[in-house]
Design a protein around this nucleic acid. Structure first.
Length: 445
RNA sequence: GCCCCGUUCGUCUAGCGGCCUAGGACGCCACCCUCUCAAGGUGGUAGCACGGGUUCAAAUCCCGUACGGGGUACCA
């Protein structure tokens, strides 16, 4: 088999939104396929009729595309192979390799029986199922530890075990890369594959992604929806880069790098075996770095929707030229796009509300803040409205009083203790609004 | 309970018998820069779970113990 013959797949079941664990599995399959020049197949495992939510299928595709994970074949739907699955179960029953649950009949005398009875596979005794896992090495199970498992539900649908085995065989999948939570289902699936005369693919079980409690990430408990990260304005490149480093690391210690390099470096056999904690702090660092490296225009284009959607001001109030002017300063300060508006708010707002701690620390407790504001108000009344002049003017007022003067001014004008450099935006804000804010703040002291 | 898997700084990882008095990154701390907050720069903090082997030599190989996790559904 050459690398071009390698076929792997991502096979999600549409029972929920795409979450980071699934996305990581999809990514590793994709990285593996791309790194060896093989084929990446997308298959939707929609056999569980009750828990299926068809409306989520498109959403899953959309999230994959957003992440830049493209597929070469598919999407295929497991439900389309229903007849094939039914035939396999029937063959198993006829051959005596499986039996109907809650029924005396050993054979399928009428196919209707398959709509009312579950079917269990007759697990052979005294066998050892051994396979060479691409990431964990040799793993083996005794069939005597396996119960006769259900391959067909009484509602007339195949279970994951059967559908997965049949589909992987029929689609010529050579490598099944999936989460470690599926490791113990492997012997069952392999047994079924042998029953239908197929050669099982090479399995590669990825270490689980876990939370602080070291438990498998769960949709209920943990914050794991890819869609949520997207909404919050994480860049997909950062997300993918970070995800690629969970359970794997390049040998040259370079972490933040283009996906093409990751593809070139990726090696399935070097994937780790131990569970990995999904660390939001590190993701933020990756995202911040990617945002910082964005060209100004690209950053502005991506940030505009977040600015326009902010309900503190009308969308029309967001002037892209103005956004652009201070973009480089904002880029250095955000980890995700949803944080952007808070760095610009004081520029778009007519009046600002002074934050509680800024009021206390920056104004009321600041030394001579009242005199600073009085001095600046007076000086700003007729000085040239220029960045350098404003800067120097505030300094002079402070020097005359022997205190640091920029703090109170910043709090008065922006309502916050910290922010992007003050004087450039002040020029754009204008003399009138600036002085109004200084006067308003003066009242609080 | 039973089966399976795992264990390098707090976290993600490099390491695949000598290059390791264990490297990088995030975080944290300090300093520099600075109108603030950041960014950036510099430095620091902290780890091979434990016990036995094998070997001239072990983070790396083997066995055991402890701890953690996954599975044990007519979910996947």
């Amino acid at each position: 088999m050459t690398n071009q013959d390698i076929r792997c797949r991502f096979a999600p079941s549409p029972t929920g939104y795409l979450h980071v664990g699934s996305a990581r599995t999809a990514l590793f399959n994709w990285l593996f396929a791309r790194s060896v020049g093989g084929t990446f197949v997308l298959r939707i495992e929609d056999t569980d009729g009750d828990r299926n939510r068809p409306e989520l299928i498109e959403v899953i595709f959309d999230e994959l595309r957003w992440l830049g994970i493209d597929w070469d074949e598919g999407p295929f739907y497991q439900s389309d192979a229903r007849d094939r699955h039914r035939q396999v179960v029937t063959d198993l029953l006829v051959a005596g390799r499986a039996y109907l649950e809650d029924s005396d009949k050993n054979l399928v005398e009428s196919t209707e029986l398959l709509d009312a009875h579950a079917v269990r596979y007759r697990v052979p005794k005294d066998q050892t199922v051994t396979f060479n896992d691409a990431v964990r090495g040799e793993v083996s199970f005794e069939t005597n530890d396996l119960e006769d498992f259900v391959v067909w539900r009484s509602n007339g649908t195949p279970t994951f075990l059967l559908a997965n085995a049949v589909d992987d065989a029929d689609m010529g999948i050579t490598h099944a890369i999936r989460g470690e939570d599926l490791l113990s289902t492997t012997p069952k699936v392999q047994l079924l594959m042998h029953e239908i005369g197929a050669t099982p693919p090479t399995y590669g079980h990825l270490p689980l992604l876990v939370n602080e409690q070291r438990k498998k990430l769960s949709k209920r408990r943990d914050d794991v929806s890819i869609a949520d990260y997207r909404t919050r304005g994480y860049l997909p490149e950062a997300m993918v880069n970070y995800l690629a480093l969970l359970g794997w690391g390049p040998d040259d210690d370079i972490e933040i790098r283009p996906i093409a390099e990751i593809v070139a470096k990726f090696d399935l056999s070097r994937v780790n075996k131990a569970a990995a904690f999904f660390d939001l702090k590190k993701l933020d660092h990756f995202s911040a770095t990617y945002i910082q490296n964005l060209a100004t225009d690209a950053f502005v284009a991506q940030a505009m929707p977040y600015l326009q959607a902010d309900d503190r001001w009308p969308a029309e109030a967001v002037d892209s030229a103005l956004v652009s002017e201070f973009a480089p300063e904002v880029q250095k300060r955000v980890a995700k796009l949803s944080e952007v508006p808070d760095w610009y708010d004081w520029i778009f707002l007519d009046t600002v509300e002074i934050e509680e701690k800024a009021l206390a620390k920056g104004l009321q407790k600041a030394k001579s803040a009242d005199q600073v504001l009085d001095g600046v108000i007076a000086a700003f009344a007729d000085c040239p409205w220029d960045e350098d002049v404003l800067n120097q003017t505030v300094r002079d007022v402070g020097d005359a009083l022997g205190v640091k003067s920029a703090g109170p001014v910043r709090v008065a004008v922006t309502g916050k203790m910290g922010g992007i450099p003050l004087y450039g935006p002040l020029v754009r804000l204008g003399r009138e609004k600036t002085i109004d804010r200084l006067r308003a703040a003066r009242e609080y002291i």
